[in-house]
Design a protein around this nucleic acid. Sequence first.
DNA 1: CAGTGGTCTAGACCACGTG
DNA 2: ACGTGGTCTAGACCACTGC
Lengths: 256, 256
Amino acid sequence: MTENTSPERVQPPEKSAASAAYSPLYQQIKALLLQSLDRGEWKPGESIPSELDLAARYQVSQGTVRKAIDELAAENLLIRRQGKGTFVSTHHEANVRYRFLRLTPDDGHQPATSSMIIECLRVKAPSDIAALLALRTADIVVNIRRVLSFDGRPTILDDIWLPGAVFKGLTAETLAKNKGPMYAWFESKFGVSMVRADETVRAVAAGEEASERLEVELGSPLLQVERISYTYGDRPMELRRGLYITDRFHYRNQLS
Amino acid sequence: MTENTSPERVQPPEKSAASAAYSPLYQQIKALLLQSLDRGEWKPGESIPSELDLAARYQVSQGTVRKAIDELAAENLLIRRQGKGTFVSTHHEANVRYRFLRLTPDDGHQPATSSMIIECLRVKAPSDIAALLALRTADIVVNIRRVLSFDGRPTILDDIWLPGAVFKGLTAETLAKNKGPMYAWFESKFGVSMVRADETVRAVAAGEEASERLEVELGSPLLQVERISYTYGDRPMELRRGLYITDRFHYRNQLS
DNA sequence: CAGTGGTCTAGACCACGTG
DNA sequence: ACGTGGTCTAGACCACTGC
C-alpha cells in the first residue's frame, strides 16, 4: 500500500531540454502551500505542519520544502518560529497590527486610536471602483466611510470599497461592534486574509467634506493614499482611499 | 604548507552552550563580503569571485557562501546572474536607474528628464542636517539645490546635503557636466554607493520659493519627501529634501 | 526529553551564458 | 566544453521551546 493517490503529488521537474514550462520543485511546493492557505486548510495564526511532515506529504526532501517556506516567509505569508513551528500570518498579533498603515507619529509615542463610522452602504459598483476590484458594474460593493482619530484628533478620512459577494453580513451595526484593526476582523469574520497591497500617494487640497470631517482649513494640504489590498492569488479584495493629516504624523517608507 | 594565515579566516561557530555572542558562519561570511564591498575590493558593476572560489577563500562550503550571498542579493547589494556570476549592484544600469525615485507617471510613458542646478555651495552643517548625517556642526557639507523637470515641466525641487569630507571636488561645474542619475555619478566619481534609504513623506503647502521654482500657485499641495540615503555599514551619506508635484505623477509603494 | 526550525556540509545534476 | 549560479538530496548537529 505504498501507492500514492494523493491529489497533491508533485511532478518531478522535467529535466530534459525539451521542457518549455519548467518549474522548480520548490516552486510547485510553494504553489501547493499557497493553495492550502487560500483554501483555509490552515487558518491565520495557526501553525502549518512541520517541514518533515510536509516533506513526507509531498514526497520531496526537507530542503525543498524549506526553500518553498523561505519564500513564503519572505513575503510575510508565513512566520517561522524556531522551536515552535511555522505559522500563518495574521493581522491579529500586536506586533503586526496596522501592518499596512505607514502613518507614524513624529514623536515615537503610540497614539490612542478610535474610529467613527460615517456610513456603510451596499451599492452597485461605480465603474472606476469595479475596474480596480476586478468586478462588473452590476456587482454589489460595500462602501464604508469613516474617520480615524489619534489621541482624539481626527487624522484620517477613509473611503473603503469591498466586494459585496465576499463580505456578506457586513453592516454598519456589525462594523461598529468590532474593536481593533479592520483587517483582523476581516480574517475572523469573513475569512479574507489581506496579504499585500499597492499604494498610490499624492498631495491634494482639502475639499469641503474633508475640511469638515478632519477639522482643517479648506484647501489645506492632505496626503491622499489610494490602496488596493490583495488576498491570496493576487485577487484584489479592497480599495481604500484615505486622506491623511501629516502635521504630527508622517508616511514612512524604506527603499532598498 | 597548508597553514592558513589569511586575515579572513573565519571562526567556526561556537557550538558549546556557553557562547554568548554566537553568530552563524554564513553571517560571518556575509560580514566579510560586506567589508570587501565597502573597501571597494569589487567595484559596482563588477563580478565578485565565484561561489566556489569564495568557499575556498573562507574555508567553508559552497552552501554557506551561497546563503551569505542570498541575503546580500535580497538586500539588493548583489545581483545574481545565472551562468555569468554574481555582480555588485550599481545605479548605472538602465533597469535600476532612479532606483530610489518612487515618483511615477500616471500614464505609463517614461518622461524625458532634465535637471537645472540652482546652486551648489559648501557650508558649515546646520545643526539639524549635521544630526541626520551623523556629523558635527563644525563639519563642512555640500548643499545642492536643483529643479528636475519631466517632459519640460518642473516637477521636483530638491535640496540635497552631502558630507563635504567625502564629496571632495564636487562643485557646480563638475555637477553640471554630469548627465544621468546623480547616484550613478556618486559611484564613479566619489566611490560612494548608496545602498538603501529611508523616506519620510508629508503633504505641505507650496511656499514662495517652491511656487516660483515649480510654477504653481502659492499654497498648492506638494508632496514633501525627506530621504536619508545610506552607504555600506548603515553610514548616512545624503540627506535629500524634495518637493514633488503630484498631479501628473504619483508616489508608488508596495506593502507586504 | 522530544520536536521544531536553523546551520553546515558534500555531492549530484540542471539551466544558462560564453566560448 | 566549460564555468557560472540554480536545484535537489541526505545526513549530521545545533538552538530554541515546551512538556
